[in-house]
Design a protein around this nucleic acid. Structure first.
Length: 274
DNA sequence: CCGACAACCTGTGAGC
DNA sequence: TGCTCACAGGTTGTCG
């Protein structure tokens, strides 16, 4: 489900519910997701107070203190993960793998495909390798057209998979890569090192706008649950190109095309994007 | 270093 | 209706 906007919307929904709250413990029902689940998570989280709810790329971080060991609970939702508040004692479904037990409710992680990750990061320990390799935040000031231009020298791969490389820049997945490139008028097939500095400036602006719009669209619909249920894909009101193969481009009326890049579908308008 | 690809899982929808 | 296949929003590891 989640790319950066979905995770950010999730974070914003989570924060008012858990910030300052204390956990009684946790229930772990699966041995592993993408990685083994921490075996003693219940003990680790018992008595912890959530003192911050942060996001890094597509990872959610709950900073905790007051238990046996201060640290951060790190959650990645993978392709199919979701977080939802349920009443204490609510019976778990098939794919409800982890419950975080708060005094008045339960934060429940479901993940049918089990591509998600839950790890415990103690304060002072070296940053977990999964997070240590992450690139820049696309909404941070340092992410500029000039930076991206410099970072893509020597990259001969098409720009779309390069945008989705989390070692370079985090949070841009299949949907928003396609949407951002459409907004910038750049072909997803163009080699990254064959795009001018000026066009990279435009691309970075397009990425920021696309992500910000998606956050705004999702953020307006949060209430008592903290995730987008995705379904067809966009929880954005509508995508310009993603998922619209064969349909008319909203800008020029031409046909939106679907191609395959690195095993994944790419949607674009060949007449608007060069 | 870079890029292409398989792999990890399950659910869903299309087509027969 | 029921089966099979292709595909799905992410990321890592391997290989050339």
């Amino acid at each position: 489900m989640p790319e950066l906007p979905e995770v950010e919307v999730c974070r914003r929904g989570l924060q008012p519910e858990v910030l300052g709250e204390r956990m009684l413990g946790a229930i772990v029902r699966a041995p592993r997701l993408r990685l083994p689940l921490p075996a003693t998570l219940g003990d680790t989280l018992a008595g912890q107070q959530v003192v911050a709810v942060r996001r890094r790329g597509k990872y959610l971080l709950l900073d905790c203190r007051g238990g046996v060991e201060d640290g951060a609970l790190i959650i990645h939702l993978g392709m199919s993960g979701s977080l939802r508040f349920v009443a204490t004692g609510a019976p778990p479904g098939n794919h409800d793998h982890v419950d975080l037990l708060f005094a008045r409710q339960v934060l429940r992680l479901a993940d049918p495909r089990r591509f998600g990750v839950v790890i415990w990061q103690p304060v002072g320990a070296p940053l977990h390798p999964l997070l240590a390799v992450l690139g820049v935040e696309p909404l941070a000031d340092e992410f500029t057209g000039d930076w991206l231009f410099a970072a893509t020298r020597g990259r001969t791969a098409p720009i779309k998979p390069v945008l989705m490389d989390s070692h370079l820049v985090v949070g841009i997945g299949n949907i928003y890569a396609a949407e951002s490139l459409f907004r910038a008028g750049i072909s997803p097939l163009r080699a990254a090192n064959r795009i001018s500095r000026e066009r990279y400036r435009r691309l970075v602006a397009a990425i920021r706008e696309t992500l910000a719009d998606a956050i705004a669209a999702g953020g307006s619909s949060i209430r008592d649950y903290v995730h987008s249920d995705g379904g067809a894909g966009c929880f954005q009101v509508d995508c310009a190109v993603y998922g619209r193969a064969g349909e008319p481009c909203r800008r020029c009326g031409g046909v939106v095309r679907q191609v395959r890049q690195g095993g994944r579908s790419t949607f674009h308008c060949p007449s608007c994007q060069h």
